[in-house]
């Protein structure tokens, strides 16, 4: 059905160096047939958006375990809107308290995955969402 593979940008936003989850997810998405661009550490919202546009991705997966998610994730949504790319789906993962998840989803993060989430669930979620918006 998909002629072209799904393209995903996996990014570490903020200053924390915990990249185990980001790398595991990136590898799992690749094994599931998606094309994955991994940014490496210490990305700003501006750098993430720039890379997403250049790489022409459908999905951005942002990993953050520093607690700065409330300050750093909403600007990604805003910047994408301003650049006319609001259709790019943003997912987040990391140590994010439940109360904050509700807020992040309200401002436009499609889903938040916390420790213990399976890569299978993430793969399925991406496929289903992209199917829905087709």
């Amino acid at each position: 059905m998909h002629n072209k593979p799904i393209r995903v940008l996996v990014g570490k936003i903020g200053l924390d160096g915990h990249d185990r989850g980001a790398k595991v997810v990136a590898q799992a998405l690749r094994d599931a047939g998606m094309e994955v661009i991994y940014t490496g550490l210490r990305q700003t919202p501006e750098q993430i958006v720039e890379a997403a546009l250049q790489e022409d991705v459908q999905v951005i997966g942002l990993s953050i375990l520093s607690g700065a998610h409330m300050q750093l994730l909403p600007p990604v949504v805003d910047l994408l809107k301003r650049r006319g790319a609001a259709e790019i789906m943003i997912l987040a993962g990391g140590i994010i308290p439940r109360d904050d998840i509700a807020y992040l989803k309200e401002v436009g993060i499609t889903e938040v995955f916390t420790p213990g989430a399976s890569t299978r669930a993430i793969v399925d979620f991406i496929r289903e969402q992209l199917e829905l918006t087709k």
């Binding site: 903020g14 200053l15 924390d16 520093s66 607690g67 700065a68 409330m70 300050q71 750093l72």
Partner: peptide
Amino acid sequence: PLARGEVGKV
């Protein structure tokens, strides 16, 4: 500028 959101967090 890169300290945005990170001050006093971890």
